[in-house]
Amino acid sequence: MADKEYNPKIVGFLCNWCSYAGADLAGSSKLKMPPAISSIRVMCSSRVDPVLIVTAFLRGADGVLVAGCHPGDCHYEKGNYYARRRFALLRKVMETLDLEPERFRLSWISASEGPRFKEVVTEFTEHIKGLGPNPVKEKTSL
């Protein structure tokens, strides 16, 4: 079945200090997870301007994951608190215009949470599979 073949493309913005290290740990622990994520390492989740996420969606990403340190654990102390507000805003913009906000996910994953990284990626991939490919991919008049 074509459906079974569908491997979503998910762009993951991972914070250098926590989630990227968490991803690394998941990898070096050889945890099995779907190969859906293209990781982009950023120094902090607050470094991700909503505009970057909009770019990913418009260029055809099926899902976008932003992952950073748990609140209170930011390497720069407060970055993820600001990030959380920014993404709440982006979500709301997408919601108001009916732009499938459910294709966006924000998760906190620490450097020691390899298993959680695996879980998040597996879950999110399943979720995106359920939604199907991002229809924006086919638009020719953006």
Partner: peptide, 28 residues
């Protein structure tokens, strides 16, 4: 790359991008 995906693109690109971007920047 974009043409491979879509078979056609609007020129210049990024109109929707600009307006969505402005919404996220000034909406608040």
């Amino acid at each position: 790359e974009e043409l491979k995906k879509r078979g056609g693109v609007r020129i210049p690109p990024n109109t929707i991008f600009y307006h969505l971007g402005r919404l996220t920047h000034v909406g608040i």
